[in-house]
Design a protein around this nucleic acid. Structure first.
Lengths: 234, 234
DNA sequence: TGCCTAGAATGGTCCTACCAAACGGACAGA
DNA sequence: TCTGTCCGTTTGGTAGGACCATTCTAGGCA
């Protein structure tokens, strides 16, 4: 529609408030439904935020990474990828990100990463760890690491991957035989990163994915326990 | 809305036809406007295709990579990425893809890649090379390489990057001082890949990005010639 | 048999009305 | 004067109806 273009090309500054739907309706000489549908699309694209009530309306806002990630995640849902391919990709990304993070990350960030990794390790040592909490923490660790690389592209890709299907990572934590080792490995990685030992850090990352491959292989031979691979986003 | 979820989770096969808006309206006990807005969003996401007339309606369709790319392109418009960050990312991807392509690509693919690379080299040796043709060929070379890695994730990321912002690569071809070297480097890379010389191939890739960095640095010192960095997607 | 038209199905638009939320100002009480 | 409450106004959200434009189909007509 003309309306969309007018808004997007208008390059309105972030935070700007668009006219109300009823005003636009008469402004563009169209029905309110059309305006609403156009706004819905802009909202879906993440370009505007809609608020109700007085002083409500459509506010231009900054795009967030999550929008892009969601798009990629949706695509991946329709085009299933082999676990091995996913691992291959993630391992590459992780190695690069770690290398960059070591160079570009600040001392404080590295300390915090290690702290959080150790927190994860402690949580996972419990008899009945809360998998929701631990997997969320794992997610945050990955994002934290990606952010330390100081390159938004890596952060975007990591977020997209995580949104799409990190179910396999959860599998690692779900299996008691791998849980401890995986958690300890996170701490080892973070420690090596903090100490500037790049080769050690990369070694630990490879180890993580070797564990993951073993865990998945094990789950595949016991398919009756593998159904959680499908439903971890309630 | 519930409607969206119902459709997406419903895992409807591609090509399936959704009920008409009026049927949905009564089915979900809601107004037609709500149904229409929900459908508009699905359409925007690229999940459905809407046709008018009898036997019209919403048809489920396969998502295309272009949707993801478009989303990324929009995001990049709002969040400009430093050329150095883009190069950093692409170089990483290229090195990994090349390594994988050497292992997983067939002999025929490698020969074809070399052939096309040499074709590009010849094209670029002309006095007034057609930049539209050559950049398109460069794009195809990259995609061909990505496909040889036999991992759709790499291919998708490369496609997204190319759709969004490979303007800097064009800069390399636009500048006569770098044009020849860049083209020759493509051939060298493809030849090393065909011959299984991984370290040589990776070396050529690094060389490519060194050239690119030099070229961009040079353009920055002559800003009056750098406007094409902005407008190469007419 | 082949073309053509009327009708049905369906999305696209417009309109009107009402509901729900959120803000702001008026007003009563301390 | 300060403060808290309440009500009116603004605005998005939803419902439902009406009409138009487009597309397909079936039946009629030459």
């Amino acid at each position: 529609m003309q309306i969309e273009a007018a808004i997007v090309d208008g390059r309105m500054p972030s935070g700007e408030r668009l006219p109300s739907e009823r005003v636009m309706q008469s402004q563009f000489g169209t029905g309110r439904g059309v305006v609403r549908e156009a706004l819905k699309i802009l909202k879906q694209k993440g370009l505007i935020e809609v608020r109700k009530g007085a002083k409500g309306g459509a506010y231009v806002r900054e795009l967030e990474v999550s929008n892009v990630s969601e798009s990629l995640a949706l695509f991946m849902k329709q085009h299933p990828v082999e676990p091995e391919q996913l691992i291959e990709f993630r391992e590459t990304m992780d190695r690069t990100i770690t290398t960059l993070a070591m160079t570009h990350g600040t001392r404080e960030e590295k300390e915090e990463l290690l702290e959080e990794a150790m927190r994860l390790e402690i949580l996972l040592r419990e008899d009945e760890p809360d998998l929701l909490v631990t997997s969320e923490l794992d997610r945050q660790l990955n994002i934290m690491l990606a952010r330390m690389a100081r390159n938004p592209l890596f952060e975007w890709v990591m977020r997209a991957l995580q949104m799409g299907f990190n179910s396999h990572d959860y599998a690692l934590y779900q299996n008691p035989r791998f849980r401890d080792r995986a958690a300890a490995n996170w701490s080892d990685t973070a420690r090596a990163l903090r100490d500037g030992e790049i080769m050690r850090a990369l070694g630990f990352i490879s180890h993580h994915y070797i564990l993951l491959r073993q865990c998945i292989a094990e789950n595949d031979t016991l398919p009756q326990d593998a159904e959680f691979l499908q439903e971890d986003q309630p």
